[in-house]
Amino acid sequence: MFAAARTSVLRSARAQLRQTQSHAACARLASTLAVLEAKEGKLNIASLAAITAGTKLGGSITAFVAGSGGKSIAEEAGKAKGIEKVIYVDNAAYDRGLAENWAPLLVENIKKGGYTHVLTGHSAFGKNLMPRVAALLDVQQISDITAIESEDTFVRPIYAGNAIMTVQSSDTTKIITVRGTAFPAPETEGGSATVEEGTDPKAECPTEWISEDLAKSDRPDLGSASKVVSGGRGLKSKDDFDKLMPPLADALGAAIGASRAAVDSGFADNSLQVGQTGKNVAPQLYLCAGISGAIQHLAGMKDSKVIAAINKDPDAPIFQVADVGLVGDLFDKVPELTEKLKQ
């Protein structure tokens, strides 16, 4: 009884404290740290989505980069519109984006700058790193936001995009990952941010990076392509996938995607998977063949501007979201489409 009363008193006291804190946060202007990605000395343009999201918060935006050649990456980033300052740390220890030393690095720089918001893309890098940062700062992170309603209120999809949740954060620092397709990258020319060196705590990294194996492609990047062609189980084999999809992609100048069924069956590389657990895409045109349209796949592509589907099953769920549907055998229709698009 007494214990219960005590907890509830404590709880209400804490709630009040939190309210005053959040009022205080409203009173001061947002100051955002946008954590950008770089690889082999080059800025990842898609990661600039964090800056676009930052501009919706108002207040100042500082960008952050780290890795070898940090200063030149910072100068490149500084040309993006919307940033006041770029903080860089030049240290090869950060080249591989390992969370074990990146997290203390960010925590130091966040504390030093007193930022109200820390944003980065909901990419493999952001997903791996930011929750670790959030835990070190004792903050409940907000993942994969698609909209910003106010300084403390954000919108994000849950249940594979089958529900949209609006949440209000009571944390003094908001740690957020943003969905790239919801915040298009800003112009990469015309900005004039100042460049400044950041703090480097040089934390030890218990994890050793051994190697990587990245799919090489001249095609546009799947996550940011304006057109995507995607194949599913209906393609039957890797040979058929390789015979039909690349020519269609080339005829359209599109990136190639795949359903989980196609990836699981070994038709396509895992990095091409579109869906709840793969990539989220929102291109101008999403053209898919041999994909039934499971919930988990729709989660990754239903924000596409125009969806076109070729499937031999007229009852396939994909036709419920497709703007243009063609019922037919993809082994006839895809080559025909490829030929006609080339003309």
């Binding site: 239903k302 703007d323 549907g325 698009l341």
Partner: peptide
């Protein structure tokens, strides 16, 4: 730490059209 303000259905897409052949698909696109 995060208060749920609301949970809503995602916007539904308008049902599209079915076309008869590849030419129909290209012209519709």
């Amino acid at each position: 730490r995060l208060k749920t303000v609301k949970v809503t259905e995602p916007p539904t897409r308008q049902a599209g059209v079915k076309v008869d052949d590849v030419d129909g698909m290209i012209s519709k696109l």
